[in-house]
């Protein structure tokens, strides 16, 4: 795995600030997102996670600060700008149409046509290839309406849609919040495979189990400031909780312990 310190960030935020009237939602946030890496964005409610996402999405342009895409300065003033760069945001509601089938949802707004009519054959082929590349295998028929899918499968469709749109940065907002154990497992595997394809992934999550499970890097927001950021192995649950609640931590991770089993670490 490429060390994050080697540079080559896909998206870099520098000194990002955003206020809503007297409320400072983000203050001087610096953050780097790397291709092929999963970065977890953690923080308590109101820490500014949503504002950060929406700034990157072009919904709320920042008051101050700069965005660099592959080292080049860019302006993201609208969702269209973000899309043009290759940024896809998967919100919690997934933005799927329940009555449409998987192929139709994956191509919504970008339907292929032949002689003015929808080219279902070509769309279905591409959709299948994309799903197979992501090893989404629990779906019975690619032509079933999305409403008949489980939560994890719906998440898979949303991710596949992003991959098919050639997304280079996928930001997922609480992808496991409403899921059971099996479904969470499935989505976390999916996130791994997404990163393996060279996509930069940012996962916003409250769930520290998931964060330690899936992330290579972590960034922790506290009251709109970046409290800490770095390789996940520099952190353990206790430190992350410290940063999330107070913005600082006096602890250090002991004995170079790997974070594979975060649940056990709590006892140490």
């Amino acid at each position: 795995m490429v060390g994050a310190s080697e540079g080559g960030a896909l998206l870099s935020l520098r000194g990002l600030s955003k206020s809503f009237g007297p409320v400072r939602a983000l203050t001087q946030v610096d953050l780097d997102l790397y291709p092929g890496h999963v970065t977890a964005l953690a923080g308590d409610n109101g820490a500014g996670k949503s504002v950060l996402i929406k700034t990157v999405a072009g919904l709320w342009p920042p008051d101050e600060g700069e965005l660099f895409w592959e080292g080049r300065r860019v302006h993201v003033h609208s969702p269209r700008d973000a899309e043009a760069l290759g940024i896809t945001i998967i919100y919690q509601d997934l933005a799927l149409c329940d009555n449409l089938d998987i192929v139709q949802n994956m191509f919504l707004g970008h339907e292929r046509r032949r002689m003015g009519l929808l080219d279902e054959t070509s769309m279905e082929k591409t959709a299948r290839k994309t799903l197979e590349a992501l090893q989404v295998t629990t779906i019975r028929s690619i032509r079933q309406p999305v409403e008949s899918l489980s939560g994890g499968q719906r998440q898979s469709v949303a991710v596949a849609k992003a991959v098919m749109a050639n997304a280079r940065l996928v930001i997922m907002d609480e992808p496991t919040a409403a899921l059971g154990v099996t479904q969470t497992r499935m989505v976390l595997d999916l996130i791994h495979r997404l990163a393996e394809q060279g996509v930069a992934v940012m996962v916003v999550s409250h769930n520290l189990n998931d964060v330690f499970e899936v992330a290579d890097r972590i960034a922790i927001l506290h009251l709109g400031r970046l409290a800490a950021a770095g390789d996940i192995i520099e952190f353990d649950r206790a430190r992350v909780v410290d940063y999330m609640t107070s913005g600082t931590s006096e602890r250090s991770v002991g004995n170079g312990r790997r974070p594979e089993a975060p649940a056990e670490e709590r006892g140490s």
Partner: peptide, 27 residues
């Protein structure tokens, strides 16, 4: 043909089910 084989038809169904998703898809 209009309802099932054209973009317009597809968008009718998308908007009818989830106008917000349709809007975000650039429709």
């Amino acid at each position: 043909v209009l309802f099932h084989r054209t973009r317009f038809g597809r968008y009718l169904y998308a908007i009818g089910a989830n106008p917000e998703a349709a809007r975000r898809a650039g429709i």
